[in-house]
Amino acid sequence: MAAGPGLGAEELDLLEKSLGLTKGNKYGVQGERKTPVLQTNSGPSLTGLTTIATHLVKQAKKEQLLGSNAEEKAIVRQWLEYRVTQIDGQSNKDDIRIILKDLNLYLEDKVYVTGNNFTLADILMYYGLHSIIADLTVQEKEKYLNVSRWFNHIQHYPGVRQHLSNIVFIKNRLYTNVH
């Protein structure tokens, strides 16, 4: 994959900033897929994006980002897993289309990934999809309207976007009258 923010270590830097953590951890990488590794002061090193991300959220004392009840926690974990297993390393156009199509359907009745609350799943899904969404054409963005709306919402959520490029969404009102 290209040097998109999908790459673990870089993305964790972004996450630290958006969580308001100022210390700045140093990350190593491991293996062919460049899995990020964090060496903590106190215990064993942590491996893998979602493990470290969860750790950072707890460090920042923003546990509500992991879900506020059992169901929400499960949904957050499910989408973090989806992010790592399905979206990362995805370069096949057809597979990306399927991901966007499913996600579009899923987000139809939701404002955030878990429904009504902003969580870590939104942040990491946003980071993971950034390079994919940036490559979409205007027509495609319009086709995956619910994904676009969600994405545009998250990139404007305070603190999330950081230095990532702001992706522009225009609703082309000339062709949207096909009801």
Partner: peptide, 13 residues
């Protein structure tokens, strides 16, 4: 409905 197709809120984010 049409207005909210690409927005999460009536105004802003």
């Amino acid at each position: 409905n049409d207005f909210l197709a690409d927005k999460s809120y009536i105004e802003g984010y």
